[in-house]
Simulated assay, not measured.
Amino acid sequence: MRLYLPATLDDLDPDADGAVTLTPRVAHAVTPALRAALPDEDEEGLEFSAHLAAADDSLALVGESADAPPLRLVVIVDVPPEAVREAGSLDAGPSAVELVTRVGRDAIACVHVDEPALREDVRAALAGDEAAAERVADADLLWYDVAELGELPR
Score class of each variant (00 low, 15 high):
22 L>K: 12
111 V>G: 00
150 G>Q: 10
38 L>V: 01
30 V>M: 03
87 A>V: 02
98 E>C: 11
118 L>S: 02
3 L>V: 13
41 E>V: 08
132 A>H: 08
47 E>M: 07
153 P>A: 06
91 D>K: 15
75 V>F: 06
128 G>Y: 10
10 D>P: 08
127 A>I: 09
84 V>M: 09
114 D>I: 01
93 G>F: 03
2 R>D: 07
67 D>Y: 09
74 V>I: 03
39 P>Q: 06
21 T>C: 14
71 L>S: 01
116 P>Y: 05
63 G>S: 14
73 L>Q: 06
132 A>Y: 04
33 A>N: 03
43 E>I: 05
102 R>M: 11
20 V>E: 00
128 G>R: 05
16 A>C: 09
42 D>F: 10
1 M>E: 09
1 M>S: 13
13 D>C: 11
80 P>F: 10
64 E>T: 15
34 L>G: 04
127 A>C: 11
30 V>G: 01
68 A>W: 11
106 D>Y: 11
67 D>T: 14
153 P>N: 07
106 D>I: 05
154 R>H: 13
42 D>K: 12
52 L>P: 00
45 G>Y: 07
27 A>L: 01
152 L>F: 08
61 L>D: 09
133 A>N: 09
99 L>E: 04
3 L>G: 04
62 V>M: 12
56 D>E: 15
90 L>Q: 14
27 A>T: 03
71 L>H: 06
152 L>M: 14
69 P>C: 08
88 G>P: 02
